Simulated scan of single mutants.
Amino acid sequence: MTKLTHVDQTGQANMVDVTDKTPTVRTAIAEGYILMSAATIEEVINHSNKKGDVITTAKIAGIQAAKKCADLIPLCHPLALSKVDVDFDIQPEYNRIRVQAMCKLTGRTGVEMEALTAVSVATLTLFDMCKAADPYMEIQGIKVLEKLGGKTGHWLHDSNTNNNENLDKPL
């Protein structure tokens, strides 16, 4: 049986010791989508949402979330991120906004959780700011797209195959 990394010998929760790992440049990119009505998309595009600049607010929220990931996710290491970027692709033809986050650092552990947290909070912020106009919005498809650095090197999400094939592959 594979040794679990987040539990100690007695079965108690344990933060992994990364002291002996070699620091490398590590990058993670994640994405997610928020689906909304055509009218709500138009409000976002035209900056006519009653709560203000939806995209800028969600961008700031995503960046802040990445920096606070260790405060939100148990057993995550606090990381000194060197770069966080959150981008938005408004796709009116699909009634959705694609949110993509990139997190980067030089360190001993990866930044996947930070990128996922940035996407999650950015989409939640979009929901919060637009919920009066469209309470039926949906957040979907949050996932890691790419990871660079560390022992496993470069990893890409293969969305063209059965995602279960990647379950046994370490990030």
Rank of each mutant, 00 (worst) to 15 (best):
T56I: 06
D134T: 06
L124I: 02
E146W: 04
L167A: 05
C76L: 14
E138M: 04
E93K: 10
T117A: 00
Q91M: 14
N14H: 15
D71N: 13
T40Q: 04
M15E: 06
A101D: 10
A70C: 09
D71R: 05
D20A: 15
D85F: 02
I90R: 03
T123K: 03
C130M: 13
L81W: 08
A13W: 06
A28C: 04
I55G: 03
A132C: 03
A66C: 06
K151L: 05
M137P: 01
E43N: 15
Q140M: 10
L81Y: 04
N162I: 09
L148K: 15
H154F: 08
Q91H: 02
G149F: 07
T161Y: 04
D71V: 05
A132W: 01
V25P: 00
M113P: 05
Y33T: 01
A30T: 11
E42N: 13
A65L: 04
N166T: 08
G110A: 05
A70L: 09
K68Q: 15
I139L: 08
Q100S: 12
T152F: 12
F88M: 08
E31I: 09
D17M: 12
V121C: 07
A70R: 08
K68I: 01
K104Q: 13
A122H: 02
L72I: 10
D8Y: 15
N49I: 12
L126I: 14
T123C: 12
Y136E: 08
E146Y: 03
D53G: 11
D17N: 14
D134W: 05
A13Y: 06
G32E: 06
A80F: 09
E43S: 15
M1R: 02
P23H: 03
E112H: 03
N49P: 08
E42R: 15
R96T: 02
A28M: 08
M15C: 04
A39W: 05
C103Q: 04
I63D: 08
D87N: 14
G141Y: 04
D8T: 14
A58L: 12
C76Q: 10
L156D: 09
Q12E: 13
V144F: 07
